[in-house]
Design a binder for these strands. Structure first.
Lengths: 190, 190, 190, 190
DNA sequence: GATGAATGAGGCTTCATTCAT
DNA sequence: AATGAATGAAGCCTCATTCAT
């Protein structure tokens, strides 16, 4: 296995185990075993368990941001942009349940408190979406509410439903996703 | 201290400490100290830490249900009932940040996975709210969406905003709560 | 075993093992085994290995100070006081080889650097001996040298010889001790 | 780098790091880094960390012996020879604090216990100094004491003061060194 | 019933040493 | 010969749970 492959394997193992069992259900020894390396090896790539977790999260964040930005209708109407973001996030999370579970664990932990402000999709991405909401308000398309409320009205339902889907309490198909995104739009639109 | 008082004290201590520090920041010895009892004593009331946590959660659930049911406008219009539920939950959580934090911790942990199906407000309460949504659909006031989507559109934003408020990323006043509840109604209403 | 007995047992075990094998040859598990307790038990009495070591040292210091002060000829001549101190320290260390070895280890370690200034016999005792040297200089009985040199001329040979005795490179009997103390006096006296 | 250069570099690195941080603050990886070689490379020159340390000590010993022997007044009076030895050792240690610290660490560790018999200045050197003391006794210039006592009266103060100087508890200038050496001579002389 | 000292398994991390390249 | 990534034993410490008092 190459150096960078091993690093990836460790992060992947951390991702899976934390997604499955939470941080405290994922000892380093278990992560090492899952990654197929010795326990000490992890420390060649990550200074501590904390940093392993944080870097793993950072990688996910980048992927999500990239996914949201791909084919983003920069010149389209606000509503279209909004629905694009929702669709993308639904797609990403439903296709990557372990990643979703990991992110949830991360946000709901001391690790995540520090970057809680950055919301589910991270700082940079928030900028994109922040712009979306601000532009929407400037155009008087959206309600007069503080930004965090827009985030809550959007990502709250989105995450809840992804979790329900992953736990198989509901089946989200394309059509249902689309209608849910529309419902969120109803919540934020004026 | 009477038997049941001691039991209450332990649960209260667990609630506070878990709310403040999370499960793994709340050793049994610390809970015992906060409750003013000996560590071993806890085990006369609760079989294990797991069960202490679960029973503490159960108590909170009951309180919340009671709070939502109080002055519930059984004969009022759907919209009024919906807004009542939202208002009550906001009130309860904002007035009880530790309780809120505990519930969040609980849901996002192995403990909570098993009872995830019961949603934030619990099984019994879901029945009340389930009826609300079902009646709303019967009256063609609500969108045609599966029940879990209604829950997500309602409790997703609600919890996100309570967390934001408790973490002081936003200040929710009466008016903002009301407008947020209205926005949720916009999401679910037809 | 009583509570305080257990505390004593742990310190005694630490004393012995550190004396025999040094700090890094004395894992907590080994100290616990020697003391007849479980590893975790040590932490009820000592916050950390560091503190266990430091408190053990502190106990020894007290004993030594007490030993030196006992029957100290407060009103005798300087020379007699000086010889008393030497005799006492020789007696103590030769009768307590493990204690001696422990103290040496302690002084020659990061632990001991902080209190190096306090010399072999500790702060309070240094005060007594410091007074001795200062009074000796005031009476023009001693050479004109800085205090640390007096300490070195006294405790340097003393410790070296105790070590040699304990390692059985030499046998120090009463007479030899007396003559060595006299030789030290020759070094410091004018 | 030539083979023997690399060997030297490793020993030099070991010397510096152990002097600065002690044995247990000097992992092989750190020694390798300081020496500018790979960790594994050390093992081509030294069987183990233990042996690296011991050989490094051996080198120092040789240097010290050489330093003491240089310009040794073989035909001078005993007193002059004695003061020469003291002066040389003071000079060497004060000019080489890391070397001094290393030697202290070494002597006060499991490594050093085995060669404790060889005293601070080593086996061969002891021969020179042993001769000095024996000749001094033959000439009835020195007290009637066993050899180890002479060593203790000489090297005990010497090392203590070097340590104090290095730790900056005292400043040893030429004059103070000379007077201290004289004081030691007072201790051993008849 | 209550206590809290004691237990010891298990967690994170370090580091001397090995070995494939 | 040299490299340095990999190993895994071992160290310190925590804490849920037990049990003698």
């Amino acid at each position: 296995m190459e150096r960078s492959d091993k690093r990836e394997a460790v992060m992947q193992a951390a991702l899976e185990l934390v997604g499955e069992n939470g941080f405290h259900g994922s000892p380093m020894a278990m992560i090492a075993a899952r990654a197929g390396v010795a326990a000490g090896t992890i420390y060649r790539y990550f200074e501590s368990k904390d940093l392993l977790i944080r870097e793993t999260y950072g990688c996910l964040e980048k992927q999500i941001i990239a996914s949201v930005k791909a084919e983003y209708p920069h010149d389209g109407p606000i509503r279209e942009q909004y629905l694009h973001v929702c669709q993308r996030l639904f797609s990403y999370f439903l296709a990557s349940p372990l990643e979703f579970r990991f992110i949830e664990q991360f946000h709901n932990s001391p690790y995540g408190i520090a970057c809680r402000r950055d919301k589910m999709i991270g700082k940079k991405e928030k900028d994109l979406i922040t712009e979306l909401f601000e532009e929407g308000q400037a155009q008087q398309l959206l309600k007069e509410l503080p930004l965090p409320v827009f985030f809550a009205l959007t990502f709250g339902p989105l995450c809840d439903l992804c979790r329900d889907h992953i736990l198989q309490f509901i089946v989200l198909d394309k059509q249902l996703i689309a209608r849910t995104a529309e419902a969120c739009w109803d919540a934020v639109k004026r």
